[in-house]
Design a protein around this nucleic acid. Sequence first.
DNA 1: CTTGGCATAGTAGCATGCTACTTGTCAACA
DNA 2: TGTTGACAAGTAGCATGCTACTATGCCAAG
Lengths: 241, 241
Amino acid sequence: MPTFEDRLTITDQLVSALREAILRGKLEPGKLYSVYKLADEFGVSRTPVREAMLRLADAGMVRFERNRGFRVLRTSVRELQEVFQLRLLLEVPAASRAAIRANDSLIEQLGIELDAMAAAASAHDEAEFMARDRALHELILAASDNKKLVESVRSLRFVTMTLGASTVDRSRSLTDILAEHRPIIAAIAAHDGAAAAAEMRFHIIHTGTLLLNQLVREGRDSGHLDPDWVAAFATYDNHVN
Amino acid sequence: MPTFEDRLTITDQLVSALREAILRGKLEPGKLYSVYKLADEFGVSRTPVREAMLRLADAGMVRFERNRGFRVLRTSVRELQEVFQLRLLLEVPAASRAAIRANDSLIEQLGIELDAMAAAASAHDEAEFMARDRALHELILAASDNKKLVESVRSLRFVTMTLGASTVDRSRSLTDILAEHRPIIAAIAAHDGAAAAAEMRFHIIHTGTLLLNQLVREGRDSGHLDPDWVAAFATYDNHVN
DNA sequence: CTTGGCATAGTAGCATGCTACTTGTCAACA
DNA sequence: TGTTGACAAGTAGCATGCTACTATGCCAAG
């Protein structure tokens, strides 16, 4: 019997906990924190806290400053723009491929996730809704049978999640977002690759536009925003629609 | 005067050194190593070695095994296939965009890199050649003005580099590879996005096919190879050509 | 010759010690 | 008042100590 090779280390648990803390705003962007204090707070030694923060630093969520502490990084307009450009490049083809490869099992699972999203929307459970949203997108990505693709988008999403759930409420209702997902699922179920790509494209562009506009309104360095960010790779992937 | 915030930590230096050691085959895939011994070898303490290896573990190059050591991971056929699929999704549109955005400065730099590649090919300096190859691809990617795009492909490339320079020699000559790059650069210089995309697509597919076939010939788990890997997202991006 | 148990060596993971460095305070001084 | 400079507090980075665990080799029992 193979002993539990997969039992989580303290470091692993802290990665999740600290990332969650950042996403929930418990650790404020721009502020200096120290490994010492966090270790105290979590009741563990400094080592696992430091190792966890190093991984988050690798992911770009945080930056160590020698002999001063570490700073939670604020998501810039520029960065968000880059994330959505990459998501377009990855998720649109993935939607197309999901439509082509879709079997009954996938279609059923997509339906279940969609129902769960609807339920969460009705209950105004924003956290649950966003979790289901993520799950739905990952299901579509996973259909491509490319683990690195799934992992890439997952890490990209952490960046936008830093902006917080607050964003959603103000720009559009959960029901609106839900409605935007339906045609994607429908196209996949109909094995219509082109339609699935087009709908996914519309969805990501719409979401990105709303988030970017909000960040600019909030006065974040709008100087770096390319108003035409979405057209960046358009001459390439416009051919799809 | 701002004090050197950017002076490299021992950990940073070790990340480069250890990655290089893996790429050069100094650390053999599948074999168990220990932080203790490596720390001794490098004349530093265990901590920076461990932190560096954790970063490489994050990148998927090694895996820690509790109380046993860490293992350098062998690149699987499956993994390589995933890498080339992602590179197609990212680098083909990037080539197109580079062609559209290309200014005289970029075109000149591309020419310089191409000349450097030619010189390295003539001198049969394989290491230099591959370094220039990387630089050329990154130049094209950087033209998109998306740092995360550059970083994504860079990390994907580390995976294929594990296979070693040995691969190149057997499958095709440096001159052949060089020849494949010329039309890409030409298309970019001509501001022909569609052609640049098509040439980049051909180049990546060709390289990927050769590498995958070689791995299969070497007897690595060919069971997981989808002979049609390149067609995976074809229904999507075929529209480009 | 095979099997089983036990000692031994070696390891990751975690805790803690140490050092050079940065920053803020506050008193001495111009 | 404004400036300087010694001093104290706090930190990341690195070194080292400690523990529970795994693999392995050896030897005795069968």
